[in-house]
Computed example of a mutant assay.
Amino acid sequence: MSILFLVLLTASCQSAYLNSQKSPVLLDIHQESDENAFVNLKNFSNDFVFDMKYATADNFLKEKVYPCGECFLRVKTIKALLEANKAFMKKGYRIKLYDCYRPLAIQKKMWKLVPDANYVANPKKGSIHNRGGAVDITLVDSLGMELPMGTAFDFFGEEAGHHYQNLSQEVLDNRKFLKEIMLQHNFKSFDSEWWHYNLNNSAADKVSNQKWRCAD
Rank of each mutant, 00 (worst) to 15 (best):
C71I: 01
L73P: 05
R74H: 15
R74M: 14
V75I: 11
K76R: 09
K76C: 12
K76M: 13
I78H: 06
I78E: 12
K79V: 08
A80C: 03
A80K: 05
L81Q: 07
L82T: 02
L82S: 03
L82W: 05
L82Y: 04
E83F: 03
N85A: 09
N85M: 04
K86L: 03
A87Q: 09
F88R: 03
F88T: 06
M89F: 03
M89V: 03
M89L: 13
M89K: 08
M89R: 13
K90P: 01
K91W: 06
G92F: 13
G92L: 13
Y93R: 15
R94Y: 06
I95L: 11
K96F: 08
K96I: 13
K96M: 06
L97Y: 02
L97H: 07
L97K: 08
Y98K: 07
D99L: 06
P103C: 04
P103H: 00
L104E: 04
L104M: 02
L104C: 01
A105R: 09
A105W: 10
A105I: 10
I106G: 01
I106M: 01
Q107N: 11
K108F: 03
K108E: 06
K109C: 00
K109W: 00
M110A: 03
M110N: 04
W111A: 12
W111C: 10
K112M: 11
L113V: 12
L113P: 10
V114H: 04
P115C: 05
D116A: 10
A117Y: 01
N118C: 08
N118G: 15
N118E: 14
N118T: 04
A121I: 14
A121H: 09
A121Q: 13
N122E: 08
P123T: 09
P123Q: 08
P123L: 11
P123A: 12
P123N: 06
K125F: 10
G126L: 14
G126V: 04
S127C: 15
S127A: 15
I128M: 13
I128L: 09
I128Q: 11
H129T: 02
H129C: 15
N130T: 13
N130W: 14
R131Y: 07
G132P: 00
G133I: 07
V135D: 03
I137A: 02
I137C: 01
I137N: 03
